[in-house]
């Protein structure tokens, strides 16, 4: 009874908190920050996709923090699921083979999924996409291989190296922005180029690549931890 009334109370409090958001009148115009970004974003940074401009440059510090949170969550998953190797019996046990359909399909689809992921990472500044989306697609390609061929995964050392190097590259580009262009994470350290072409928007594609590799490596690490748990 006391549980039930506490639940109802909590729902009422949540409704009270969310109520002002619900009666907000629909907007007709952009807010000040959004108006400034949509008006000057293209001339400032040269990226056709304004959402990417916000993620990578205007609010780049948030993205750096977010990548840190992702790293912490991955480390947390590894820490929580850590188990001392009891004996070698668990390792020598051969996991059950996947079906032939899955194996053939995985080999067939793998290159296309990787190409799609790379495409989405490299086109983040001119079309919908970017490091996060492309990185997750890359991770899915490796998940497919992990499902089709149990026991085969990206070597742990390689994953950790990619993760660390891409994080280091991200922070390095950010500090280069501070040194050359005067602001932390300023992407105008490279010429902005012709808006809409592949090589444009200063350092935004480079940061996208760093984010993509980092997110992909983190995701594969999380999946590998959970996969190891199941086996």
């Amino acid at each position: 009874m006391i549980k039930r009334s506490l639940i109802v109370l909590l729902l009422i409090v949540t409704a009270y908190i969310l109520y002002p958001l619900a009666i907000l009148p629909p907007q007709d115009n952009l807010g000040n920050a959004a108006a400034a970004i949509t008006a000057d974003g293209v001339t400032d940074l040269g990226a056709a996709n304004l959402v990417t401009s916000v993620i990578v440059s205007y609010r780049g510090l948030d993205t750096l923090g977010e990548v840190t949170v992702l790293f912490l969550a991955t480390a947390g998953v590894g820490f929580v699921l850590f188990r001392k190797r009891k004996s070698d019996t668990a390792d020598t046990e051969v996991p059950r083979q996947a079906s032939e359909f899955l194996q053939t399909g995985a080999i067939f689809l793998w290159p296309y999924i990787v190409i799609l992921g790379i495409f989405i990472i490299f086109h983040g500044h001119i079309s919908p996409g970017g490091g996060f989306q492309g990185g997750v697609i890359l991770a899915m390609a490796f998940l497919l291989i992990m499902l089709a061929f149990p026991g085969k995964a990206l070597p742990e050392g390689f994953r950790h190296a990619m993760e660390s190097l891409s994080g280091l590259a991200y922070v390095g580009i950010a500090i280069a922005g501070l040194a050359i262009a005067g602001d932390f994470l300023n992407t105008r350290i490279l010429p902005t180029g012709q808006t809409g072409s592949l090589i444009s928007a200063g350092a935004i594609p480079l940061i996208s690549v760093a984010i993509g590799i980092k997110v992909g490596a983190e995701m594969v690490t999380i999946l590998a931890h959970l996969r190891k748990e199941e086996a």
Binding site: G31, A33, A34, V51, V54, G130, F132
Partner: peptide, 21 residues
């Protein structure tokens, strides 16, 4: 407005990480 879209992209990834944890 591009800002909420960017925030949600961030929130999706954080949500994924928290779900995994």
């Amino acid at each position: 407005d591009p800002i909420p879209s960017a925030l949600v992209l961030t929130a999706i990834v954080i949500g994924l990480a928290v779900t995994a944890l």
